[in-house]
């Protein structure tokens, strides 16, 4: 399907890659359909683009790219709602934000997006672990060997 977005124009999204949230991110509960779009030039980040609102998109990233000791301890209820059988089927993304007028990049560790990558259903879960903040500063250094193949860099926006 073709999806209109304010940032990327008309994007072709494979129906099989549409992520359906059981309820949208907190504050955006009615926005439930998303696709992932590669962020350029920093490929470790992606856009989570709403298919319901062309202007709504979040920058997201896999927290394991930046943090060594971040554990998502999913409640039984959340695991059940997401129909997760195995931990390997869970893909964790954190919403990225900024503080201090863009000087500091932060990740919301308290409420990650957990995706059942087999069924492509997802939810923003609220962790009970009070070590995790909604705006945890992260350091984005250029990853070693992160150079993207030219072909990839030139590629148009594509759904992950």
């Amino acid at each position: 399907m073709k999806v209109a977005t304010t940032r990327f124009g008309l994007v072709e999204v494979d129906d099989l890659s549409i992520i359906k949230m059981l309820r949208g991110p907190i504050g955006f509960e009615e926005h439930v359909n998303y696709c992932l779009i590669q962020h350029r030039p920093e490929a470790r980040f992606r856009w989570m683009q709403s298919l319901d609102d062309p202007a709504l998109a979040f920058v997201v990233a896999d927290p394991s790219e930046f943090l060594l000791d971040y554990d998502v301890d999913l409640s039984e209820a959340d695991a059940q709602a997401l129909r997760l059988q195995k931990a390997e089927d869970a893909q964790v993304l954190t919403i990225i934000s900024v503080s201090d007028g863009g000087k500091e990049i932060t990740a919301n560790l308290a409420a990650p997006i957990v995706i059942n990558s087999k069924e492509l259903i997802a939810m923003q879960v609220v962790l009970q672990d009070n070590r995790y903040s909604v705006s945890h500063p992260i350091v984005v250094r250029k990853a070693r060997g992160n150079a993207q193949p030219e072909q990839d860099r030139a590629a148009q926006v594509r759904a992950a």
């Binding site: 991110p25 979040f58 308290a110 409420a111 705006s135």
Partner: peptide, 10 residues
Amino acid sequence: QIKAENMKAA
């Protein structure tokens, strides 16, 4: 807090 952070991120 989560709601405010989501709003800000968007």
